[in-house]
Simulated scan of single mutants.
Amino acid sequence: MMAKYHLEVLTPHRKFYDGDVEEIIVTTSAGEVGVQRGHIPMTVALGIGTLKIKNDNEWKEASISSGFMEVKPDNVIILSDAVEWPEEIDVSRAEAAKERAEERLRQKKSQHEYILARAALRRALVRINVAKKYKKI
């Protein structure tokens, strides 16, 4: 069994996770990063993607939507705009958000609006993929 450390995941609306874990893998702005107990301290920007939590040799996966992660040797704090377990994801709402984002991309507006639409599309796709992987839709 791997040595555990404390993980706290906070969003503006709730404490998503607060407990000991063996390992996490999270999407950062530069790709996926794995963290185990004793990891070198760092602060990193999170991207739109997934948060995988390993506890008692079992992985759970959630969608995560940007934020920051502070890593210390014996604890990790994640502050994120939104984090959802697969069973919390409203797939029809995510599908509607995907369609809206695709339509905004087709309209070819300003560079700023394009970047926002791409991020919205990425969030919707991650939510849909995480939900479908675990909900057997």
Results as ranks from 00 to 15, higher is better:
residue 55 N to L: 06
residue 45 A to Y: 07
residue 9 V to D: 09
residue 11 T to V: 09
residue 16 F to L: 09
residue 42 M to S: 12
residue 48 I to R: 03
residue 52 K to E: 14
residue 57 N to Q: 14
residue 66 S to F: 04
residue 46 L to Q: 02
residue 40 I to C: 04
residue 46 L to H: 03
residue 28 T to F: 05
residue 14 R to T: 12
residue 27 T to S: 09
residue 41 P to C: 07
residue 48 I to G: 00
residue 41 P to L: 05
residue 6 H to G: 09
residue 33 V to S: 07
residue 68 F to S: 05
residue 66 S to V: 03
residue 31 G to D: 06
residue 56 D to T: 02
residue 68 F to Q: 06
residue 5 Y to D: 06
residue 35 V to C: 12
residue 38 G to E: 13
residue 41 P to K: 14
residue 25 I to L: 13
residue 9 V to W: 03
residue 13 H to R: 11
residue 47 G to F: 00
residue 15 K to L: 14
residue 62 A to K: 02
residue 32 E to D: 14
residue 20 D to I: 05
residue 50 T to R: 11
residue 61 E to L: 03
residue 20 D to M: 13
residue 14 R to D: 14
residue 59 W to T: 05
residue 35 V to A: 12
residue 38 G to W: 12
residue 65 S to I: 04
residue 34 G to P: 03
residue 53 I to L: 09
residue 35 V to Q: 09
residue 57 N to P: 01
residue 26 V to R: 00
residue 28 T to W: 05
residue 57 N to V: 01
residue 9 V to R: 03
residue 7 L to Y: 07
residue 68 F to W: 12
residue 56 D to N: 14
residue 51 L to F: 10
residue 62 A to T: 02
residue 6 H to Q: 14
residue 61 E to W: 05
residue 64 I to R: 03
residue 23 E to F: 11
residue 65 S to K: 11
residue 13 H to A: 14
residue 42 M to A: 11
residue 51 L to R: 02
residue 23 E to T: 07
residue 18 D to N: 15
residue 54 K to V: 14
residue 33 V to P: 04
residue 26 V to I: 15
residue 59 W to P: 00
residue 40 I to K: 05
residue 63 S to D: 06
residue 55 N to K: 15
residue 56 D to M: 04
residue 45 A to W: 03
residue 35 V to I: 15
residue 31 G to A: 09
residue 56 D to G: 01
residue 39 H to Y: 09
residue 54 K to Y: 11
residue 4 K to W: 02
residue 36 Q to I: 13
residue 11 T to Y: 08
